[in-house]
Amino acid sequence: MTGINKDWRNDIYAVFKDLNITMVSHVPDAGHTPLINLCEKDNEIDVVTLTTEQDGVGLSCGAYAGGRKSALLMQSSGVGNCINALALPNICRIPFLTIVSMRGEWGEFIPWQVPMGLGTPKVLEAMDIKVFRADYKDEVGSTVDAAARFAFNTNRSAAVLLSQKMIGAKQFKNG
């Protein structure tokens, strides 16, 4: 599972296929876009665009109750929106997997991204989510695989933080 594809998003997609994850919800982030595109091309994966990240928690839990595995993709700024919703998989011991593209931590241009970027791991851990982190491209596949197995094998919540160092920080230009 380690870095077998040219683009690490393909490694995440390979984990989805290997573990039969057939529903992927998201509030989009540029870092996830190639993965979202791969999932949208796959007839076996339902891609659900949300209006707020927290709805991906409920959606994912309902899908699991109906027998399907899913994953929620979001940017770090969306993690804060999910806090109370995360009580649902916690109290029901429903496996929950989210993959978070980090902002506000490595070469960030936009100051508004920093507060939730700093808060993301703390908030997730405060809600008893097992936090995994991938800092290098060749460890993305194995990290997502480990997090997904942790979630689905032990009926708990897991998050993978994809570091901004790996994704790359966009530098904005005025005009």
Binding site: D46, D55, G58, S60, G62, Y64, G66, R68
Partner: peptide, 11 residues
């Protein structure tokens, strides 16, 4: 509502 949607999609 999101939960019911996920359930309905799965069943």
């Amino acid at each position: 509502i999101p939960f019911a949607l996920g359930l309905a999609k799965s069943q």
